[in-house]
Amino acid sequence: MLNPPQRAARKIKNLLPITTIWWREIIRFYRQRSRLFSAIAQPLVFWLLIGSGLSASFQPAGAADGPDYIEYFYPGIVVLVLLFTSIFATISVVNDRREGFLQAVLVAPVPRWRIVFAQALGGTTLALLQGLLLLIFTPMIGIRFGVTSLLLSLGVMTLLAFGLTNLGLLIAWRMDSTQGFHAIMNLLLIPIWLLSGAFFPSTGVPGWLAWAMKFNPLTYGLAAFRHSLYLDTTAKAFGEGPPWNLSLLITGLFCVLTYVGAILTASAQTN
């Protein structure tokens, strides 16, 4: 049996690798400031251009008492920022594990689940920070935060960022080249976002599309985020979305499954 100080020492020894890998992700990001700009500027430009452009001519289906398109589009843009940041944070894994810092991490006596957890935590932190920056725009579109809605929104954002980072890790640990990663991103990740209700609601879309949206985990993540954003604001109709509790449940499940998937992939790729 270990005495308390020994147990404390072991705990620190187990935590150190996690904090150090996490901290490295943060420092790297801070020192490559162009990343910060690109991950946030692109969605912002999308939002302002597409949002303003479509506001004039389109009314989201099923939204009778009319949120502007720019307002409808906003939660989707926050999720896009989370998606971009998480994905860019994980793309470094592709090169890093074959010709970089990760090689040394992989031969160190650190279990794979701790490595993946630390990486996911790093991506989540970065995504969350950038998502927070975007919350500045909420007053502009008439969202008012109370304590509950703010905390809940942050909670949902954390879940989404963690799930998306793990999804990114799951792909990155499998890839041999960053080109492959970009291909997956265009073929899989962007469509997942497009079909999550970020761009248009599922009400009134053709049947096959409605089904695709129903099976898309991000649909539920986005719905949960919308719900939490508008908790303290007079609700506007955004068309029929999945119910609040189901959305939260599926988002949580998405986090767990992607995390387990990322661990399994990382373990299978090394030893």
């Binding site: 904090t19 150090t20 901290w23 490295r24 790297r28 810092f101 160190a108």
Partner: peptide, 18 residues
């Protein structure tokens, strides 16, 4: 297997933590 964005000491410190 060094992180070029980190300083020499930072690289070693991270390694030590592992």
């Amino acid at each position: 297997a060094l992180d070029v964005k980190l300083t020499v000491v930072e690289n070693l410190r991270h390694h030590g933590h592992l």
